[in-house]
Simulated scan of single mutants.
Amino acid sequence: MTRADIIVIGGGIAGISAGARLAEHMSVLLLEAEPQLGYHSTGRSAAIYIRNYGNATLRALNAASEPFFDAPEGVSDTSLLSPRGEMLLATEAELDELAAYAAEAEGMEQLTPEQAVELVPILRREPIAAAAIEWSARDIDVDRMLSGYTRLLKARGGQIVTGAPVTGLARQDGTWQVRTGTGTYSAPMIVNAAGAWAGEIGAMAGAIPITLTPLRRSAAILPAPEGHDVRDWPLFASASESWYAKPEAGKLMVSPADEDPVDPHDAWPDDMVLAEGLHRYEQAVTVPVTRVETSWAGLRTFTADRTPVAGFDPLLDGFFWLAGQGGYGVQTAPALSEFCAACCAGLAPGLPDSVRTALAPERLSPPV
């Protein structure tokens, strides 16, 4: 039996970043069900840092993560961010949604419809009633981030076992026994960073019942519109988030921004959902969609209040929840991994009390 001070279940960006931080203080063993790390949500991320994205708790986590992205010590020698910008477009029917977003945001600049079209020349002018841009939104180099955290975890003595889905969890004499297809592992503490499967891991362990709902999000790569160089365009999206488009390696990634509840699985796009989303996108631009080069889908897993759950389970000793990151997992990973490591190592967490309370697992548990 392989032993460690702590076992991290899940090899996406949440688990890998937490493992790398924890390895500074204790021996770490990370278990990933898939043959490779970052296979599910991490590898299918939109890969953009938007400080104003999400509710108040998420915006606090975004802000706490930004210094790491700019200077990712131990993970990369250079910033993980590059300029992009995020532009929101509102029709008359979406003006209230744009106003509500802007009211809670910092650093948003109002644009005229003409300015919006100047930034993205394929936009149709007629339906744009208002627009706003967050210039500070930036692309994230997710591959470099994941590989950097992986190197850091290994450099600090951490072990990674892939192809090891968890089949059983039990606590005996103050130690967790974790059964997988590759063997049994033990540690006094566990971090549940299993993404869409975190609810199943919690139930297997006998933790408090937390509802975690995976929502499918689809995307497609379209060729760049003829005669246009899209590389310097911002991400552009409807204010109601009914679609968005982002330059990707000289082409355009377009998403229907779908949120269909599904069971945890290796997600794939629904052809009808994708077609309907591309139609909504077509209504906003002057260039028809004539070819889809490739498409995919990922799972964004949410709690009931759409805020991550991070903290020790109130019923189980040594069981730490790190789940429910939804569509914010990559850009909140630096802050949440530091928080996880501090809690598990018995150090002072670096987040305000209000944020810690908002993340606490007990908020999601029905009263006994």
Rank of each mutant, 00 (worst) to 15 (best):
S45W: 13
S45V: 12
A46N: 13
A46E: 10
A47C: 07
I48L: 15
Y49R: 06
I50G: 13
I50Q: 14
I50N: 14
I50V: 13
N52K: 00
G54M: 02
G54P: 06
N55A: 03
N55L: 02
T57R: 01
L58Q: 10
R59A: 09
R59V: 09
A60Q: 09
L61F: 08
N62Y: 05
N62R: 01
A63Q: 11
A63N: 02
A64Q: 02
S65I: 07
F68W: 11
F69V: 10
F69C: 03
D70W: 14
A71Y: 05
A71F: 04
P72M: 08
E73N: 09
G74K: 01
G74Y: 08
T78P: 02
T78G: 03
T78C: 05
S79A: 07
L81P: 00
S82I: 14
R84Y: 12
R84P: 09
E86N: 12
E86K: 13
E86R: 13
T91D: 05
T91L: 03
E92N: 12
A93G: 02
D96E: 07
D96R: 09
A99I: 07
A100D: 08
Y101T: 08
Y101N: 01
A102F: 05
A103R: 13
E106I: 10
E106H: 11
G107Q: 14
G107D: 15
G107R: 13
E109Y: 14
L111D: 05
P113C: 09
Q115T: 01
V117P: 06
V120L: 04
V120T: 08
P121A: 04
I122V: 15
R125A: 13
E126W: 02
E126P: 00
P127Y: 04
A129D: 00
A129S: 00
A130S: 07
A131G: 01
I133P: 00
I133T: 01
E134G: 09
E134N: 14
W135V: 14
W135A: 15
W135D: 15
S136R: 13
S136Q: 15
S136D: 15
R138M: 15
D139L: 12
D139S: 12
D139N: 14
I140Y: 05
D141K: 05
D141W: 10
V142S: 11
V142I: 10
V142F: 05
D143A: 11
D143F: 06
R144V: 04
M145W: 04
M145P: 03
M145L: 08
M145R: 00
L146R: 00
S147N: 04
G148D: 01
G148M: 02
Y149E: 08
T150Y: 06
R151Y: 06
L152I: 07
K154Q: 08
A155Q: 15
A155E: 12
R156E: 08
R156S: 06
R156D: 09
G157S: 04
G157A: 10
G158F: 00
V161A: 09
V161R: 02
V161N: 08
V161E: 11
V161T: 10
T162D: 14
T162Y: 10
G163Q: 14
A164Q: 05
